[in-house]
Structure formats: structure tokens, C-alpha cells
């Protein structure tokens, strides 16, 4: 029988053939539960992976094009050094704009750590200059040399020092999510294989009768494979729906909430959830098919 015909028989089913194998409550419930639980976990692993990806992209995009110049100087020299730094920056190729932050903006930056009543006037706070790069970017080493000569109190921070570890961490987190999905798939296959083996062993007498009357092994295997595939499909559909609901009910993304509040699906991410039940079905189809072929091969 061709693969296409086998697949069509598997999908369309055969009411009479389906009745040949008696319903087995234990393995049916086990498969349904395992597929449902695994699909539920897959939803969270997928959410984690996608959120990590978004985080890495955001850090990469938002911070890659910006730098900060910090000027530490005595009060009487601060204005002059700031003006000198801005002159240097404006004449540097690769810098789109440079702007000294106002006292109010610096207060807002420090407020999360020191509170809103910070007396900036009485503290030796360095002046910050926000630099926005062009797409080509600037020559960091050259700029540092110029600043060293013309603005001795200036320190250039291009964010690489802390952006790269954060991007790396986000990338690892995303990889961890995908590895988790892979492991969940493998665990699902293992559990369905065990359930299928139990069902095949429990139905050794049925298999013996079917063989006696001329049933081919492919027919017998199909009866089991179809049953387990449909169970996995429906269990995964329920698990995915519950997982999606749980993710949907998580707090929505807010800047103040950071990473955790962004642990949801956005746009096409929701569509990816629709792939989980069919993939669980494919895993069950392959796992049960292998178990059935092995068991039928061993039975004389």
C-alpha cells in the first residue's frame, strides 16, 4: 500500500477497523494526559524562547546605535568641558547627534536607585552626553584618543561592556527554550511508546486472532497507530489551549515589569501554537508506528 493511501486511511479512518482493537482505558487516559501535559509545557517553553529572542533583539537594536559620554570635572570646568566634548562629537564622522542630558533627565535616571528627592545640586554628579550613531557607526578608538586630548575628564561608554553579556544571556535563554521543546517532544515520544507497548501487550490475543483470519501486520499496526495519534492530537489540543489561556492571563508587558511581564506571545507567535497539536500527532504517529512494528515483529 502506498504511503499516501496509508496516510489517507489513517486520517479518514475506518469505523469498522477502529472497532477491531478494544478500547483500553488506562493507555487511553495515559496518552491523553501525557500529550496534554507536554503540550502545556511546550507552550511555556515556546513563550520563553520567543520572549528571550525579542529581548535579545531589543537590546541589540536599541542599544547598539547609542553610546554615553560621561564627564567628570570640577564644577567650574564642567560647562567648558561639556561644550568641548559636544564640539568634538559633532565633528566626528559616524555620530548622528550628541546631546547633554538636562539636570531633570539625570535626576530621573538616578531616581530608581536613590529616590526622587536626590539633591543633585549638592552632589558631584558627572554630566552625561547621549550619543546617537549613524548606521555606519564611529571609530571608538579614534574618538577616545581625541577626547583624551581635548576633554581629559570624559569617559566614553559604547555599552558593549554590558550589552554583549546581556545579549549572550538572552541568546542562551532562547536556546534553553528550544532545547526544552526538543526534550518535551522526546519525552512525549517515550511516554506514548510505553503506552503503545502496554496496549500492544494487552492485546496480544486480539493480534493473534487478527493474524489467524488473515490480517496483514500493516492493518493491525494502523489500528493502533491511528488510535494513539488521535489521542495525542486531542490531548495536545487541550494542553495547548490551556497553556495559551494561562499565558494570555499573564500580566501584559510593561517597561517597569521588565522581562517577566513580556513572557507572552505577540503577533505570529500565537500562530505557532497551532503547530503544537499536529506536531504531537506526528510524534505519536512515529512512536506508535515504531512500537507496533517492533512488537508485531517479535510476536510469532
Amino acid at each position: 500500500m502506498s504511503k499516501g493511501l496509508q496516510l489517507s486511511k489513517l486520517i479518514m479512518g475506518d469505523a469498522q477497523a477502529d472497532r477491531v482493537v478494544p478500547p483500553t482505558g488506562f493507555t487511553a487516559r495515559l496518552t491523553l494526559f501525557a500529550a496534554g501535559a507536554m503540550a502545556f509545557l511546550t507552550v511555556f517553553a515556546l513563550a520563553l524562547s520567543l520572549a528571550s529572542g525579542r529581548l535579545a533583539a531589543r537590546w541589540g537594536e536599541e542599544l547598539a546605535q547609542s553610546s554615553t559620554l560621561r564627564i567628570s570635572a570640577p564644577d567650574e570646568q564642567m560647562a567648558a568641558q561639556t561644550a568641548a566634548a559636544l564640539t568634538v562629537l559633532e565633528s566626528t564622522p559616524g555620530i548622528a547627534s550628541a546631546r547633554a542630558l538636562s539636570v531633570e533627565e539625570q535626576r530621573n535616571l538616578l531616581a530608581p536607585w536613590f529616590g526622587p528627592d536626590l539633591p543633585l545640586d549638592s552632589l558631584p554628579i558627572p554630566q552625561l552626553i547621549e550619543i546617537v550613531e549613524t548606521e555606519e557607526g564611529y571609530d571608538g578608538a579614534g574618538l577616545r584618543l581625541r577626547l583624551q586630548a581635548e576633554v581629559p575628564g570624559a569617559v566614553l561608554d559604547d555599552h558593549n561592556r554590558w550589552r554583549r553579556p546581556l545579549e549572550r544571556a538572552a541568546g542562551r535563554l532562547r536556546l534553553l527554550g528550544w532545547v526544552s521543546i526538543g526534550l518535551i517532544g522526546a519525552a512525549t515520544a517515550a511516554m506514548i511508546t510505553l503506552a503503545a507497548n502496554a496496549a500492544l501487550a494487552a492485546n496480544a490475543q486480539v493480534i493473534s486472532v487478527l493474524r489467524l483470519i488473515g490480517a496483514q501486520d500493516s492493518y493491525i499496526a494502523r489500528a493502533f497507530v491511528r488510535r494513539f495519534t488521535l489521542r495525542a492530537l486531542s490531548g495536545a489540543a487541550i494542553g495547548t489551549a490551556l497553556g495559551a489561556l494561562a499565558v494570555f492571563l499573564l500580566p501584559s508587558a510593561q517597561d517597569s515589569g521588565g522581562f517577566l511581564t513580556g513572557l507572552g506571545f505577540q503577533g505570529i507567535g500565537w500562530a505557532l501554537l497551532a503547530l503544537i497539536p499536529p506536531l504531537a500527532g506526528v510524534v505519536a504517529y512515529l512512536a506508535t508506528g515504531a512500537a507496533a512494528r517492533r512488537t508485531l515483529g517479535e510476536l510469532t
Binding site: 493474524r211 488473515g214 490480517a215 496483514q216
Partner: peptide, 8 residues
Amino acid sequence: RDDHAMTR
């Protein structure tokens, strides 16, 4: 096995 099934 298929031959056996057909014979049965």
C-alpha cells in the same frame, strides 16, 4: 508475513 496473511 504478508504472504502468510494472504494465504490465511
